[in-house]
Each structure stands twice: as C-alpha cells, then as structure tokens.
Design a protein around this nucleic acid. Structure first.
Lengths: 201, 201
DNA sequence: TGCAAATTTTCAACCAGTGAAAACAATAAG
DNA sequence: CTTATTGTTTTCACTGGTTGAAAATTTGCA
C-alpha cells in the first residue's frame, strides 16, 4: 500500500493542488486554464482529470475529509447530551479546528474564502458541497437519536443551524472583520437556531 | 414600450423557454444542446445568449420575479407583527402561490423540481439563486425592523428558516409524498426555526 | 422613402471536459 | 534479470458551452 506508485500519486496530487492554488491566487480562477495548472505540476492536461473531476474541485481538496470528521462526531454522540447540545459542540469543534489550522495552512484558508466569495462557479460548488454535507449530517444525527428525532426534525435542525450561521457570516463579511468578531457572529447565529430546538424538545 | 420590438422579444423569450423545457423533459438537460434549443425556437445559437446568461438559467426563468414578490412583502411589513410572525406569513404566502399555480403551469413546476433534483448543474444553480435570495431578504427584513433586528440577526433568522425548510423538504422527498404531506413538512420545519427567534425576541 | 438604432446572424476562437488507444512505468513471478 | 501483468500517463480527436466582433437584417422614426 505504500509502494512507489502510491507515493508518486500523492506527490502528483499535491503538485496539482499547489500549482492550481498558486495560479488562482496570482491570476484568478477564471483566467487560469487547466493547461497551465497541469504544466505547473508537470503532467499532461488529461491527467488532471484522473485526480479531480473538475477545475473547481481542486479548491475543495480537503473538504471530504473534514466532512467525515464532522459526521463521525455526530455518529459517536455523547451520553446525556441533547441533540441541540451535540450540535452546539459540533460548532465549537469546527471553530477550534479553524483556529488551530491543523493541516491546512492559514493562507490556503484565506485564499479559499476569497475565491469562494469572488468567483461564482466556486461559490456554487461550495454551496452544493455544504448542502450535501448537511444532508449527510442530518441523516447521521437522526440515526444517533433514532428514538427522539425524526429524519425531518434532524434535517430541520441541521438546516437551521447551518443556514443561520452561513447567512449571518456572509451578511457580516462586507467590512473585513477580525476572526474573533466572526466567531462571535457564528455563535450568535448558532444560538438563534438552536434555541428553536431547545424550546421544542 | 409595447412596440413591435418588445412584443417580438417577449415572443422569442417564450419560444426559447418552451423549446428548452420541452427538450429537457424529453431528453434530459445534459443531452440537450444549445443548438437544439435555438433551432426549436427558430433563432441562432448566439441569440440564446442575449436572453439567458447560461443554459441553466432558462430553467429558472421566473425566479427573479418571485424573489421580488417575496422581497416586497418583507419590505412592506405589517404593523404589529413581530419579525417571526412576518416570516411565518411569508412562508404561508409562498405555499399559497405554489398551490394556486398562478402563472407557472403545474407541469413546469414538477419538471423543474425533477430537473433540479436530478441534474447537478441545476442543483448548483438553484442553491446559489436561493442563497442570493436569502441575502436580499435578510437585508430587507433588517431594514423593515431597523430598530429591533441587526443585520446579523435578520440573516440568522432568514438563514435558519430557509435552511430548515429546504433541508427538511429534501430529506423527506425520497418517497413520493403528496403535496399536503410536503406542506406539513414545510410548516413543521418553519416552526422549529422560528421558535428560536420567538424564544429570544 | 431613407437614416439611425436595436437585434440577429455569421464566423472564429477559447477552454473545460470526455473517450479511446498507444506509450510508459511499476510490480510480481519465474 | 527478464517477462508478463497491471496501473498510470500521454496523445489525439472531438463535443459543446460561451464569448467577441463584424456583417446583415429589422424596426422606429423623421
């Protein structure tokens, strides 16, 4: 499993990601061609598509991983915690990850945010990724609390939480805020959404 | 304003929409080419792009109109109504429109739903349209209740409401439900989201 | 009728994405 | 070390969405 083949593939993947992000940063997403990305990684254009399904997908190279983490957290659950509390701690965890910038360099995160806010195609991709993630999380939450939460209720909860946070953050992003201010916004938006669940049971 | 020119343009627009929807219905979105759509409307391929910015946009030909309606409802407000109540009646209004099928024929609505659930590109477009709509509605709501609701709170409220409804409906769509069942889901999801606002003030 | 403005067509080009066959590199077996 | 096998990359040819610009056509108006 750790043969030369695997290592080479990982290296090529990294090279493609780095080439792409650098070019996107320098010249913008639209103005960068796949040919240039591939050239930067020293592979043929065709090869790009055996690593990523589309030009947009390079930008979200680590999203699947992160989604799995979130899912496993909801799947594990925590004895004695209500669904609302579990979701609240999910938000806390996500904030902690982002502050800790574990694997992703901070520049990557900033670049990604800028690109997503700027380029319509990337915004669209981000929204569908987020949407799919929410569906998966709702399903997981429902399974974790099978007796208490119907699938619809779980979906409503997850949708309300993410919808609230997403829109509040974006609406508050015009002026360039500090990270702390953004975290505050996240928490306030999450509270508004979670209050609904708590007040209903 | 109602010269021959305008009328002709409206006719061409209609022709393009009908040609496109019919072809999408028959052969699917991906398998239909712009050349075919244009041929069906008896215009050149290039002309298509002076009516719609992309192949996807034909499917959402009336979305802007509907969004403006929703916005004006929030802008008008209703004396004595809390933001949560106003949003609740917005949902009721939307349900009423959809049941009444005012301008859009029912087949169009069904086709659109099928396409959006089926074709990834259309799903992406739908999500960004919905996202932009929400931002505009949040802004409007904030302006209507300038003293009570900060922009962030308005965004959180709108995001929670739409996020909840959207995800609950989709999560509940696997099996083919009746309209009444879907309306129920909408109302339940809306209640969960709005309870948060009400319990906070 | 004839000029000016708006609209459509034609034409050429760019780029993302796909399929298939050929070339190449890595692994395992003898 | 050579060879057969299998996985990966390259090359090539093609489709289709999208854009820009100039030419041709249509409409509005004097």
């Amino acid at each position: 499993m750790v043969g030369l083949r695997e290592r080479k593939k990982q290296r090529t993947r990294r090279a493609l990601i780095e080439s792409a992000l650098q070019l996107f940063d320098e010249k913008g997403f639209e103005k960068t061609t796949l040919a240039e990305i591939a050239a930067g990684a020293e592979v043929s254009t065709r090869t790009f598509f055996s690593y990523f399904a589309s030009k947009e997908d390079v930008v979200f190279y680590d999203t699947h991983e992160r989604m799995e983490l979130a899912k496993s957290m909801l799947a594990r659950g925590e004895p004695g915690k209500s669904p609302a509390d579990l979701l609240a701690s999910l938000i806390d965890n996500i904030l902690a990850w982002m502050s800790a910038q574990e694997d992703l360099t901070f520049e990557d995160a900033e670049l990604r945010l800028r690109l997503v806010l700027t380029e319509p195609t990337l915004q669209a991709r981000a929204l569908t990724l987020l949407f799919d993630t929410q569906l998966a999380l709702a399903q997981t939450l429902h399974e974790t609390y099978a007796d208490e939460l119907s699938l619809i209720e779980a979906a409503a909860a997850v949708g309300a939480l993410f919808g609230s946070v997403k829109l509040a953050v974006i609406a508050n992003l015009e002026n360039n805020r500090s990270l702390e201010e953004i975290w505050d916004t996240v928490r306030r938006a999450a509270d508004i959404a979670l209050a609904g669940m708590r007040s209903l049971g």
